[in-house]
């Protein structure tokens, strides 16, 4: 065997676990999913080709779909920037050189490692309209709290507040970004007499933009697929106010055994993710500063 051929085969042998897994669990399912999106299919009987019918009814007829898309976009548009804002503020505060900083850091970080299902249990409890902590505290201040998860006006906001509780995760990423900013930039700015506010807006935030961009992209992709919390806490209600895209897709697939329709929905979601992320990458040049 020539050394060249040998190298080819060794390389392929090393990556073979992934390559086989990719073909069986991702590659073929990917193609199959395109095919299924043009069929009516209940997984028991063989799929029946229906052409563009699934896509047609998605776009023109399905009010639930339209509502789910709106709910999901609204959630992404509000919760992602809100999470970035709070994460950056926390990281800036934690980057200060004050006593007990590691205690504070632990306090803010711990909620983000609480498993999702436990978080939903905690928030279902503290947001309980009658005997929950939040409305108890509000009542102390003379305010009658809403029914939160039970109120169509507040349910989506409740999930956003709950998401903010886990902001410690991205806070850690911002904190690492802050530590990477070279000190000489600040030293030079201080010599030039730049005020703290000026240093924040001219050095710290611009230097942090790559990390902010990363969290923005990941946040958008994640929130378009938001599922578990809504499935457990509201199951789409009340009045469809938290019927997220992925939740409706899941119901279509597993509750109504409408696999063709669900596949079409998955493809619309995939396209939406591709379009939104490329749009975000397109804005990159204007506000994200790489290197120095």
């Amino acid at each position: 065997m020539s050394p060249k051929l040998r190298r080819e085969l060794t390389g392929l042998a090393f990556i073979s676990p992934w390559l086989i897994g990719f073909i069986v669990f991702t590659g073929l399912p990917f193609l199959r999913s395109i095919q299924l999106s043009f069929t009516r299919y209940d997984i028991v009987r063989p799929p029946k080709f229906v052409g563009l019918a699934n896509y047609q009814s998605l776009i023109f007829d399905d009010q639930v779909f339209r509502n789910a898309a709106v709910v999901t976009l609204k959630f992404a548009i509000i919760s992602v920037p809100l999470g970035i804002f709070c994460g950056v503020i926390l990281a800036l505060l934690l980057n200060a050189n004050v006593r007990g900083i590691s205690v504070y850091r632990t306090v803010f970080f711990l909620p983000s490692i609480v498993p999702t299902v436990a978080t939903t249990a905690i928030f279902s409890w503290i947001l309980n309209p009658q005997i929950g902590l939040v409305n108890g505290l509000l009542a102390k201040c003379g305010v009658t709290g809403p029914a939160w998860l039970g109120d169509p006006k507040w349910a989506l906001w409740s999930l956003m507040f709950m998401g903010l509780w886990g902001v410690g995760n991205s806070m850690v990423i911002y904190l690492a970004g802050l530590k990477d900013i070279p000190n000489y930039l600040y030293e030079a700015a201080i010599v030039d007499g730049a005020s703290p506010a000026k240093r924040l807006f001219k050095i710290t935030l611009p230097m942090l933009t790559p990390v902010i961009f990363f969290n923005l992209v990941m946040g958008v992709i994640g929130s378009l697929q938001y599922f578990t919390q809504a499935y457990i806490m509201t199951n789409g209600g009340p009045e469809d106010s938290t019927r997220f895209y992925a939740l409706y897709l899941f119901d279509r697939a597993w509750r109504y055994a409408d696999m063709g329709y669900a596949s079409a929905m998955a493809w619309v979601l995939f396209l939406a993710i591709v379009v939104l992320t490329s749009a975000l990458f397109g804005t990159q040049k204007r506000w994200v500063h790489y290197g120095s």
């Binding site: 190298r7 080819e8 060794t10 390389g11 392929l12 090393f14 990556i15 992934w18 390559l19 990719f22 669990f25 991702t26 073929l28 399912p29 990917f30 199959r32 999913s33 299924l36 997984i43 992709i221 378009l224 697929q225 992925a246 897709l249 697939a253 696999m259 669900a262 596949s263 929905m265 998955a266 493809w267 979601l269 995939f270 993710i273 591709v274 992320t277």
Partner: peptide
């Protein structure tokens, strides 16, 4: 290991990270 398909396959690997699980859920 510098084999021929290294770069294109690595590109595919990276691309799969962007694929939402919903797309492959049903065929899987």
């Amino acid at each position: 290991i510098n084999f021929k398909l290294n770069r294109p396959l690595f590109g595919i690997l990276i691309a799969t990270m962007a694929l939402p699980g919903q797309v492959t859920m049903i065929p899987q």
